[in-house]
Design a protein around this nucleic acid. Structure first.
Lengths: 347, 347
DNA sequence: ATTAGCACTCATCAAATTAGAGTGCTAATA
DNA sequence: TATTAGCACTCTAATTTGATGAGTGCTAAT
């Protein structure tokens, strides 16, 4: 069977209608609302074909048709026409980013809120991945008789800190000395790029403070790099409760218990390969089977030309793909631009 | 009408039964399950009295009785007998706190998770309130040609940071000088306690860097102190979906949209006066009318003898008060102890 | 003061009924 | 040959009905 022009139009009509009404679409509706110039009977025949081809399905005998995952996929790949944002929406976004911002975290936070608000779905925003950014400044600060804090500033502007124990007799001068050497050796280096030889150099220069160094380097590598690899902001979780597919509390429960764990969020956001740009995962294409009735649209954002993280929208498979793609595209560009401006130029 | 011994016992039975079953309690049930040695008819008479007194109410004519807010209040104030935690639970808590912890944030996070897990309700954990803790260390770090980060370490171990613009020609030496003066003047001072005279002293010593100072002090006072006054961790939100009173999606929606805003969380956690120890707010006693069918049990935690923040459990008014009070009491003590150990002694 | 007995109320559940949307097929039509 | 009108059929969802049973309040007996 071939996919001719008319079949495409009918499929498009079914998908558009289902996206906006959440009700199975019947032949009569199509012939009335989307004037294709043919009678319901003809549409019925075509629909039988589309069903056989796997693009649509029938919830039960006497109901209309709904798109299948394959149908959505075809729509997204071949039929979808992107929407334009309204003047007003563009304005909202622009002013959201133009507003004075000093911190990366704040920008990301705001991004999440705007995404959720503009799409009415749930937004996920991943903070920059530390492995990919480099040390800007390292500072050890004495806190108490045997305690210090190690503060690590990355070139993205992110600041991480961690308590550590130090020998009783250590002074702030000692710590300053250590900080000095660490800075000299590590500044500008990516976390991933630190080699053993470099570490040896540091130990050589600071043989006296061996045990503090052990701890400091362990903290910098393990703790800060792995434990806090990236954080994921969630925004607009309750938006999803407005969708009719989540009027059943059990489904909500499954989803919420999933979203409450950051690990799974990371899993959900992940895209196969290092795909740049926009990725759409529909239903069973998702990494988690708990969200088989959801779709995920993600985009990466970058600083300069390094991809630093991902933002995404989670909604039902019946989501408004055209709109979400437009929004997320616009937002990821704005986000990249803003971050760059924030860090390179002056905030 | 007077509240005699038997009325109390009947009220207690109703409340206990309703807490565990979520179903209206009838006279027959009480006489059978809780052998008070009287017939259902007698209990019916007493129940009519209790209803007139406002302690219980009838959802509809042919149903049993459920406790009213006033009934819960009487229970909590006069009838409730605290539960003991099991050996195992005590163990869980102890080991949860014994595990190596280096950071305040981590301890609080874990506290939230344990609270949610032990009670099966939603846990709220407020981070230490900045206004009440004092500056330990202030550091300005040059980031770029005209940008710096101000890092503020509090005596609680909390670290706050904020980007700021600085004049083009400023050097790290300048910033070190400023940091030095700020430290000398502000170390050990509470945020609330800084007086104008002190600020003047600082300006006098650093007249040269007036504009940086303006910004730094503004940031320290406004931004860090107010914007980040305290953060509130939410844990186990989806636990509440297990409660039959939230089997209706609309109610869930109201609750979730409330919990998604940190401001309202703060509002909800707030207790009238500076009440130390455990506070119970039942139904309409809550600050927000959206949670009139919920109760909130909170406890404060301290460092030394300063009250630093609040932890709380949010559940339906039909929550297991006896258990939650025990759990939260135990947790807040453990938390206070752990924080003290973490900061005073060595982590 | 307590209790047995009884009439009464009301929510809940299941079965029966109805209404309507939508289909697939067939035969007529262009 | 492609399209369409017409019609019988199917199935869901909504509504109605009736039965069930839990629970009450009242009264009169204990």
């Amino acid at each position: 069977m071939k996919m001719d022009e008319r079949k495409q139009q009918i499929l498009l009509a079914i998908i558009k209608d289902y996206i906006s009404t959440a009700e199975p679409v019947g032949s009569r509706t199509i012939s009335r609302k989307y004037k294709l110039g043919v009678s319901p009977a003809t549409i019925r025949n075509e629909m039988a074909d589309l069903e056989e081809m796997g693009f649509i399905e029938q919830p039960h005998t006497s109901a209309g048709r709904i798109p299948s995952n394959l149908g959505y996929r075809y729509y997204v790949d071949c039929l979808m026409q992107l929407e334009q944002l309204t003047e007003q929406e563009e304005g909202t976004i622009r002013s959201g980013y133009e507003n004075k911002v000093r911190e990366v975290a704040e920008v990301l936070n705001r991004t999440g809120r705007m995404l959720a608000q503009l799409t009415n779905y749930t937004a996920l925003v991943q903070t920059p991945q530390l492995g990919k950014c480099s040390y800007k400044h390292i500072q050890l600060v004495l806190m108490g008789p045997a305690q210090a804090i190690i503060i690590v500033v990355m070139d993205t502007g992110a600041v991480h800190h961690q308590m550590m124990s130090v020998p009783e007799n250590i002074t702030q001068q000692d710590l300053d000395q250590i900080s000095g050497v660490l800075n000299a050796k590590l500044q500008g280096k990516t976390m991933g790029s630190i080699r053993l030889t470099l570490i040896k150099e540091i130990y050589f220069e600071l043989a006296r403070h061996r045990n503090i160094l052990d701890l400091a380097i362990e903290l910098m590598q393990d703790r800060i790099a792995s434990a806090k690899e990236d954080k994921i902001y969630l925004e607009g979780v309750f938006n999803i409760l407005n969708q009719p597919e989540f009027h059943n509390v059990d489904k909500v429960k499954v989803l919420l218990s999933l979203l409450e764990q950051e690990d799974t969020l990371r899993d959900i956001l992940e895209t196969p390969g290092d795909s740049q740009g926009i990725t759409i995962k529909i239903g069973s294409e998702n990494n988690r089977q708990e969200i088989q009735n959801c779709s995920m649209i993600t985009a990466t954002y970058q600083m300069g030309d390094k991809i630093m993280g991902t933002i995404g929208i989670l909604g039902p498979t019946r989501m408004d793909y055209a709109r979400v793609v437009t929004v997320i595209d616009c937002m990821s560009r704005n986000l990249s631009r803003t971050l760059e401006r924030l860090l390179k130029g002056q905030g």
